[in-house]
């Protein structure tokens, strides 16, 4: 008898717990599972996205996609920008967050200002950076020649040696504000008493950073890193606003390729298979990051 009520309580308890995830689950099931299932289904067909007829090709689209060197090249391009973002952008975001986390003069001002680039519209960003990088009348070339470095002047976005990096720089400039506020929120969540305690124990500021800040911030670091990877790998509108994927294939990224297949050449099924491959790659990368964070946390 007692056991039964216990079981009942346990059951009720678990059901209650489910209640917490239910609203999210319903939305997810409706608006995610069906579309993704559709994408999966279409990826098995040769289909132009218009005709009533589809032609079943099994894994043919995936085979084509995996063997397509331009697709992997676009993946590598996005990977390169992601690498830049993971290192430089996040380092800058962390540095700024650490500085602003202290009580410094004008802290509030900086806090507000650093979040401005993400707020800016893509059109404005495109116009301004095109003007900076322009080969003839660009600001960058103007400054370089003023500094006596006129030899370095070039059409920055049209030169295969610089195009991808230049796009990466715009992306990082635009994106560091995101990392900045997440990191700042994380830093603010660290109880100040912990710093005090460490200071009383005689730790200097570097010691406090490595012994107090870093261990507590690891989950937030991982969060920011995963978001950086996901956000950067899916870079798209910036490419369209600056280089359109050119010159040649030097700044093509996965999303531009998927759209080129879908709308450009009307290979809808193929585009779906690209999307799925892309999703799986992102998934694997994110999972590795999460696993790493767990390992780090344990040590």
């Amino acid at each position: 008898m007692k056991l039964k009520t216990d079981n009942n309580i346990l059951l009720k308890d678990t059901l209650q717990n489910y209640l917490f995830v239910l609203p999210a689950l319903i939305l997810f099931a409706t608006f995610y599972i069906y579309p993704v299932y559709k994408v999966f289904e279409l990826s098995l067909f040769e289909y132009d996205g218009i005709s009533p007829q589809k032609y079943f090709v099994g894994l043919g689209n995936f085979k084509d996609a995996l063997g397509n060197s331009i697709w992997w090249h676009s993946m590598r391009n996005a990977g390169y920008i992601t690498f830049l973002a993971l290192t430089f952008q996040n380092a800058l975001a962390l540095l700024l967050a650490l500085i602003v986390d202290r009580d410094i003069k004008g802290g509030r001002f900086y806090r507000i200002v650093f979040y401005l680039p993400p707020v800016l519209s893509g059109i404005v960003i495109g116009l301004i950076w095109n003007w900076i990088y322009d080969g003839n009348y660009g600001l960058l070339n103007h400054w370089l020649s003023a500094l006596g470095l006129g030899k370095l002047a070039r059409a920055w976005l049209a030169d295969p040696k610089t195009a991808l990096t230049c796009v990466g720089i715009i992306h990082m400039w635009r994106g560091f504000g995101w990392g900045f506020i997440i990191l700042l929120a994380g830093l603010q969540n660290i109880p100040r008493e912990l710093y005090e305690a460490a200071r009383i124990d005689g730790a200097n500021s570097r010691g406090i950073f490595t012994r107090v800040t870093v261990p507590l911030m690891i989950p937030v670091f991982v969060l920011v890193m995963i978001l950086t990877v996901l956000g950067t790998m899916q870079i798209y509108d910036l490419i369209v606003a600056t280089t359109g994927g050119g010159p040649g294939y030097h700044t093509e990224v996965p999303i531009t390729r998927i759209l080129a297949a879908m709308i450009g050449s009307s290979r809808f099924g193929y585009a779906c298979s690209l999307g799925l491959i892309f999703g799986v790659v992102l998934l694997i990368v994110s999972m590795i990051q999460l696993k790493l964070s767990k390992l780090l946390k344990q040590t």
């Binding site: 322009d134 003839n136 059409a155 976005l157 049209a158 600056t242 280089t243 359109g244 050119g246 010159p247």
Partner: peptide, 16 residues
């Protein structure tokens, strides 16, 4: 050719 022509969207070309 104008420098950077291969990375120019038509609207920038028109500005130029």
């Amino acid at each position: 050719l104008a420098p950077g022509i291969v990375a120019m969207v038509n609207k920038s070309a028109e500005q130029t």
